[in-house]
Nucleic acid binder design. Structure first.
Length: 186
DNA sequence: CCCTGATTCGC
DNA sequence: GCGAATCAGG
């Protein structure tokens, strides 16, 4: 597979959208994340604009050592993860909020047993939502938006292996309904 | 361990 | 130009 104009275009777009190299690779197909990164560099669009600045990138100008004599491993066990569309979890527990603007009132003394679900924390680029179809075992499957709707998508960020959600969504997903800790001696 | 991007260099 | 191997951080 070569870098056709279309593919380069898509690459550029997705990269600008903030997708990770591996995600882009999955989106393009037939390429590894390394290929994507390599291309990105060749295109000269490496450093991505970070809102807010403070992008203290890791400047590594160290000598690359002699990789010439490095022991090359014959077989790479990792095959290309085809990322089969895993079945959508039916027992979706998190509250599905509309769009992405659900504001939770700053209640100071929450008496509610049910944990307030602040769903309006992140903004996921449209292009990334599409790539969410590439959900693997370790991507956050927190649903956002109205299921079945065009707006619906999954969080898709990193989640530890085994857990269905990213750190953030995990915290709100598993909040005990009965948090009666502060009921005692209050 | 998983991930991320960065870099080098044989092809 | 391409991208695997490697590195270095999170």
């Amino acid at each position: 597979m070569s870098w056709t104009a279309e593919r380069v275009e898509l690459l550029t777009k997705l990269w600008a959208d903030g997708l990770s190299a591996s995600q882009i690779a999955g989106e393009l197909g037939n390429v590894t994340r390394n290929a994507v990164i390599g291309k990105v560099h060749r295109l000269g669009l490496s450093g991505r604009a970070k809102s807010g600045g403070g992008a203290t990138k890791t400047r590594k100008a160290t000598a690359p050592a002699a990789r010439t004599a490095s022991p090359i491993k014959p077989t790479v066990t990792e095959a290309v993860a085809a990322a089969a569309p895993s079945p959508t979890p039916r027992q979706v527990q998190p509250t599905v909020a509309g769009a992405n603007a659900l504001k939770v009132e700053p209640i100071e003394t929450i008496e509610t047993e049910i944990a307030p679900v602040p769903v309006a924390e992140i903004f996921i680029p449209v292009s990334e939502r599409a790539s969410i179809l590439t959900l693997n075992e370790r991507t956050c499957k927190w649903p956002i938006g109205d299921p079945g709707s065009e707006d619906f998508y999954f969080c898709g960020r990193q989640s530890d292996a085994g857990t269905p959600y990213c750190a953030h969504h995990r915290s709100i997903a598993y909040q005990p309904v009965s948090d009666r800790r502060n009921r005692r001696a209050s």
